[in-house]
């Protein structure tokens, strides 16, 4: 393999990997405040892409993206308020079935609204054939956008959870719900907020990714599986682990193309998921003690 080809694969891997990491972080945010896996996470990514494509007809690109992210966040809040909020201590299985149901509901609604056609946002800078040279390889500027936006999101999220009082309260809620209530925190609102946040980051990722991957009504399912694999690989609830695991999966997938046919790319994620669930169910970076405390 030539050095240029290596760089090319590496960037492709990092691009897809940051996407998987964002979906996995979306899983983690909700998992941490509620202890449940929201299988509709991938649909937020699809919604972000689809809504911004539709809005683009009426307004400039930046505004369409901002509005699409806002609308998806509202959808996230709505889902929590309608389907989750009123449940009293639901079992894990019940929640899994509910979120899978929600994901099917959103997908079918999207099929109804946007049809089966494949759409995409235009490239933010230049077009499909614009490239910049990095270390001898030709990279699309959109790749830089994806990596940049995903990095920004991860940094902002860690700032939010680490230094703001609302972020601290969400972490408190995740660590010990009873104690959080004793501190006067309305834990139900924190759960709504966690849905809003993960819907928002999913939608933004969906927008920046759309020029490269295109958007279709059933994009969410595949992404949810990849994101779930990454979340498990990184250790459920561990967002630092999700970034590392996301990049790892993305890069493995990208380089696998040089060894096995492209059609098998999907199988690799599933194979990794199965392997991890058998060998290290707490993930590469998860601790057994911590996992013992969780219900899922």
């Amino acid at each position: 393999m030539t050095a240029e080809l290596f760089i090319q694969y590496l960037f492709a891997g990092i691009t897809y990997g940051s996407m998987y990491a964002i979906v996995a972080i979306g899983f983690n945010i909700i998992y941490n405040t509620t202890g449940i896996i929201n299988f509709a996470q991938g649909e937020f990514v699809m919604l972000g892409g689809m809504i911004s494509i539709t809005l683009l007809r009426f307004m400039p690109l930046p505004l369409a993206i901002v509005l699409a992210v806002g609308i998806t966040m509202a959808v996230g809040a709505l889902i929590e308020i309608v389907f989750i909020r009123w449940l009293k201590e639901p079992s894990v299985l019940r929640m899994v079935i509910i979120t899978i149901g929600i994901s099917i509901l959103i997908r079918e609604a999207a099929l109804h609204i946007w049809g089966e056609s494949v759409r995409s946002l235009p490239y933010f800078v230049g077009n499909e054939i614009t490239t910049t040279g990095i270390l001898g390889a030709r990279i699309s500027p959109q790749v830089i956008w994806v990596i940049g936006v995903c990095t920004m999101m991860v940094l902002l999220l860690s700032l939010f959870f680490g230094t703001t009082s609302v972020g601290r309260e969400m972490r408190a809620c995740a660590a010990n719900r009873t104690a959080a209530i004793l501190c006067g925190i309305n834990t139900r609102n924190m759960v709504t907020l966690s849905f809003v946040l993960s819907a928002g980051i999913g939608a933004l990722a969906g927008c920046v990714m759309s020029p490269i991957t295109s958007t279709q009504y059933d994009n969410g399912t595949g992404l949810a599986i990849k994101g779930f694999t990454v979340a498990i690989l990184g250790g459920l609830g561990n967002s630092g682990g999700a970034v590392a695991a996301g990049l790892l999966l993305g890069i493995i997938e990208a380089f696998s193309v040089s060894v096995v046919p492209l059609a098998f790319q999907e199988a690799i994620a599933i194979a990794i998921l199965l392997l991890i669930l058998f060998v290290r169910p707490n993930g590469l970076f998860g601790s057994k003690d911590l996992a013992g405390l969780k219900e899922f």
């Binding site: 009082s165 601290r168 309260e169 972490r171 408190a172 660590a175 010990n176 009873t178 104690a179 959080a180 004793l182 501190c183 006067g184 925190i185």
Partner: peptide, 21 residues
């Protein structure tokens, strides 16, 4: 509570800061 309920993964200071909520 009878058994201490700390927020795991947070420092002692952060625990107290949550109380200011």
């Amino acid at each position: 509570y009878q058994n201490v309920k700390m927020f795991a993964g947070m420092t002692a200071l952060e625990n107290v800061m949550v109380g200011r909520h």
